[in-house]
Nucleic acid binder design. Sequence first.
DNA 1: TAGATTGTTAATCGATTAACAATC
DNA 2: TAGATTGTTAATCGATTAACAATC
Lengths: 212, 212
Amino acid sequence: MVSEKTIGRLSLYRRLLNGLMEENRRNIYSRELALLAGGTAPQVRRDLMSIGYSGSTASGYDVADLADSISGFLGNPGGTSGVIVGAGNLGRAIISYFASRRPMLKLLAAFDNDPSKIGAEVCGRPCWDIAELSEKVAEFGVRLGVITVPAEAAQETGDRLVFAGVTGILNFAPSRLRVPDNVYVEHVDLTTSMEKVAYFVQSNTQRRTLEA
Amino acid sequence: MVSEKTIGRLSLYRRLLNGLMEENRRNIYSRELALLAGGTAPQVRRDLMSIGYSGSTASGYDVADLADSISGFLGNPGGTSGVIVGAGNLGRAIISYFASRRPMLKLLAAFDNDPSKIGAEVCGRPCWDIAELSEKVAEFGVRLGVITVPAEAAQETGDRLVFAGVTGILNFAPSRLRVPDNVYVEHVDLTTSMEKVAYFVQSNTQRRTLEA
DNA sequence: TAGATTGTTAATCGATTAACAATC
DNA sequence: TAGATTGTTAATCGATTAACAATC
């Protein structure tokens, strides 16, 4: 019903609205929200209509009420707990990134296969042996997993997570995961993102050089 | 001409091909590459056709030759140097992430406004005062910037980078940047990515609960 | 040749955009 | 009322998918 892109934008709208509430803003127009979110006004209205929320003509949307409605639809991400597999540089950064935000993902533990990390604490979270992954995930009833292992190990890691009952994966490894239909995978490829920017920078530079 | 999505996929293809070369694979079919990249075979062929590369029937694509052609089109990301603004948890992680990969972005320096960080080293890179940003960026001829500052400071940071001559920005702050037409912005919003996964996990859980 | 693959063309699908009537 | 905004409908655009001819 509601598209995946809309889900992502609603998440952004909610955070923008929370920011506005701190400034005591009461109402907002689709045009303003679109400007903040980097979209268009009709798009914002369509997104909100898709979750059954209506604004009122001439006064737009009530900031607090809209934030509540989006939360009612998206649910509370802070109520979801997860685990992270791969306690390298990126893994540690993700842990501290999410730990420093309030209504955010609770990462209960990290997993790694490096003996020097197993048993230690990583950014305040315990780091366990990957061999214990299935057991621990099932024990805590975790349904969300974050993958920050090298590309070669990503599929095996995904398989383990799914086997243990995880139904949502945030994958930072640059390889696509094959998972059952009921499992959702969100893919974040930092290297691709960076290379896209590098490409446009280089083509821009070339254009300038040719013009000169 | 070539779509932005294709640019991103070509980046992934190149890395997958580099991996295959280490295994001494000589040729590959669109179907196999699609499986690795998480796409479809016609899509892979279309992407390659869009950069003027042709395979041969019955033997597919030459791995080394294709990797070369993609590199000829995308350019060398390792030849691009950049700076990062914001030396917090995420900023440090990004520095170490890109530093640990070979043909990757060279981040020359970090910038921050925290006096305790200015003058220090951050993951082997110097950390300078944001006030010096324009001067330093112009001095080194940097054209790529990474933004890892809080949302409130993102637009100002982007303005400074653009003013100093940056034409490509990798933005990790959850707010859209307004930039001139000749500047390319790639947006990575980790919180949105995570909340999308959390949403699908929760809706999955609800469905299961209702079924039970 | 037979079989599998590639490149090309047409059809489909989805999302975005534009135009307009309804509303406060 | 006048003006600006919302929700709705139709048109456009782009990318993906499917079907097919060409090729080794």
